[in-house]
Nucleic acid binder design. Structure first.
Length: 582
RNA sequence: GCACCGAUGGUCUAGCGGCUAUGACUUUAGCCUUCCAAGCUAAUAACUCGGGUUCAAAUCCCGAUCGGUGCACCA
């Protein structure tokens, strides 16, 4: 079976985009190398992501270690949730928590190691609860790569299973950086690691992969977005909870989807729109892209709403490439608890509100001489009393476990009206999380075309492989080709190469083989423009520029060629404007 | 992790116990060539790894690794 995955991977290997890591030693599943062209392609994808989220949304990028300390992942739930001892039924293959199975026969099963659990299961002859079959050896199931920090192995560390936690942990610093105001966002592009039991599907499921994530901290009472109007007309294919029950997706504008409560709120809708724009810009086909809402039972319990961007691939069907979730205040609360530090924001009201409050005022002039060193503690205790505590003849407070009587003279109290200017809240987090490797593979697949090509009538059609990458992401952006291997053509070609490089364009010079072969070579790696130097160049200083997709050519001046090409790549200048038709 | 199938130059492939291991494409050097791959000459380059059977293993057996598919797991 030759499917598109195979064709794309074959091309990727052959031309230096992507291949299995450690091939020299036989390879290891779940790891892929990006070759010279692949690394460049991926970097360009990341830079477009930066353009959208870092530059245009002003969600500054940070970089934190890929190794995290244990506390972080205790808070995030990865330590507890991702390290269960599992055993499988040898007959029906069902997997079970081994510690749960031995719960009736052992005091504290969670303290036992996998080997010990295996022994217990054997000794008590515990069978599969489903079918009564025998159970296999118990193994630890933990998605995180564990390591130790420093000598002695006393401190545990983990390779992060997602980049998100680093941004939550830095919340107090980031809040200061953004001058104590909501909303603000922060991003990170980096590696994450999951020790998958059996990674399959090539580059789709990796043990080491690149995530681009944004964590946007917003006021939970206001989930509108100031720029919602810019994107509310964008039409997306939505595969909502309801749609999934009915088995159908629908096209709908983001404005309508938020209006009809299909998407929970504006902020989430806004993120969906920017995600759509990003994916299409890097080369994903819009007709092979949809947004699927998580079903209630698959959504994390804390999440308010969650949508995945899914891309259709030839072999794997719909593949999740982006997750966009409203994570509420779950993460900040978890880290606040684990670190015993408040993680919240003081939010001012538009107008101060008036609040009536019962206020106790201890008279320090009396309390001081009376209680000396204890006076401060007693005063604090008094402040907590309610009006009924103060109505009796004597006032009693408890300090350090002792009941102390305080003279009424020493305390005054009244109802006061106070102005309150704001309150402390825990922000909610909106998290768009991108799988860069999956996106990079997907755009390769969507760009890959095999077609029958002929330039002129009467010629025989021949197979042409072409990667229709957007010029902006193409790893090689221009090829400079002397028509023949002659010095008088090579010299001007070298001049053009220099000019293009100076303009920041990645350019490849190629004078090997016939011109046709060189065009094909460049088609295959997605080079959008080829510049050919011929004998007319010597006469009148013009060259031909060939368009990868249409195979059409225009004639344009050698002078200013770098600007000409640059504008086509980055400024949307059309190929027809680049020169005179030939 | 289980079951089944597979693994030969960069890529695709022939090979079914006995050779110097097919062939094509690619690549490199040169020739030819005035715009869409394969005209000429030459060169480079492979049996996944480890064990076993045999006089002899790319070929048969066992194991490992990697890849594919199904189950399980995962998002």
């Amino acid at each position: 079976m030759t499917d598109k995955y195979e064709q794309v991977i074959e091309l990727a290997k052959r031309r230096g985009f992507l291949w299995n890591s450690f091939e020299l030693y036989g390879g290891t599943a779940g790891f892929y190398d990006y070759g010279p062209l692949g690394a460049m392609l991926k970097r360009r994808v990341e830079n477009i992501w930066r353009d959208i989220f870092v530059i245009n949304e002003e969600y500054y990028e940070i970089e934190v270690p890929t190794i995290g300390i244990e506390d972080i992942f205790i808070a995030s739930g990865h330590v507890g949730g991702f390290s269960d001892p599992l055993t499988e039924c040898l007959k029906c293959k069902e997997a079970f928590r081994a510690d749960h199975l031995v719960g009736d026969v052992v005091e504290n099963p969670d303290t036992l190691s996998a080997d010990e659990l295996t022994v217990v299961i054997g000794k008590h002859n515990i069978k599969c609860p489903e079918c009564g079959g025998g159970l296999g050896k118990v193994y630890e199931f933990n998605l995180m790569f564990k390591t130790s920090i420093g000598p002695g192995g006393k401190r545990s560390g983990y390779l992060r299973p997602e980049t998100a936690q680093g941004m939550f942990v830095d919340f107090p610093r980031l809040l200061k950086f953004y001058r104590d105001r909501l909303p603000f966002g922060v991003t990170q592009i980096g590696k994450a690691y999951r020790n998958e039991i059996s990674p399959r599907q090539g580059v789709i499921r990796l043990r080491e992969f690149t995530q681009a994530e944004a964590e946007i901290f917003i006021d939970p009472r206001d989930k509108t977005h100031p720029k919602f109007g810019e994107i509310s007309d964008i039409i997306l294919v939505l595969y909502s909870q309801k749609g999934q029950e009915q088995g159908s997706s629908e096209k709908m504008s983001i404005g309508d989807a938020v209006q009809n409560k299909i998407i929970a709120h504006q902020f989430l809708g806004y993120c969906l729109a920017r995600t759509y724009q990003f994916l299409v810009r890097v080369g994903v086909s819009p007709e092979k892209l949809r947004f699927r809402q998580h079903m209630k039972d698959e959504m994390a319990h804390y999440a308010a709403d969650c949508w995945d961007a899914e891309i259709q691939s030839d072999r794997f069907g719909w593949v999740e490439v982006v997750g966009i979730a409203d994570r509420t205040d779950y993460d900040l609360k978890a880290h606040a608890k684990q670190s015993e530090t408040e993680l919240n924001v003081y939010v001012s009201y538009d107008k101060p509100i008036k609040v009536e409050r019962f206020a106790v005022k201890p008279n320090m002039g009396v309390l001081g001489p009376m209680f000396k060193g204890n006076a401060g503690k007693i005063a604090n205790a008094l402040k907590l009393l309610k009006s009924e505590d103060l109505s009796g003849e004597t006032i009693e407070v408890v300090v350090d476990g002792k009941v102390i009587q305080v003279d009424k003279e020493a305390v005054s109290f009244e109802n006061v009206t106070e102005e309150v200017h704001g309150e402390t809240i825990i922000p909610h987090v909106i998290e768009p999380s991108f799988g860069i490797d999956r996106i990079t593979y997907s755009l390769l697949e969507h760009s890959y075309f095999e077609e029958e090509a002929k330039v002129e009538e009467g010629e025989e059609e021949e197979k042409r492989i072409v990667l229709r990458l957007p010029p902006e992401v193409a790893p090689v952006q221009a090829a400079v080709l002397p028509l023949l291997t002659r010095k008088e053509l090579i010299d001007p070609a070298n001049k053009i190469v220099k000019a293009l490089r100076k303009a920041g364009i990645l350019v490849a010079f190629d004078d090997s083989g016939t011109i046709g072969r060189r065009y094909r070579r460049n088609d295959e790696i997605g080079t959008p423009y080829s510049i050919t130097v011929d004998y007319q160049t010597i006469d009148d200083g013009t060259v031909t520029i060939r368009d990868r997709d249409s195979m059409k050519q225009v004639r344009a001046g050698m002078d200013g060629i770098e600007e000409n090409i640059y504008d086509m790549i980055y400024k949307g200048k059309s190929f027809d404007e680049a020169g005179r038709k030939v």
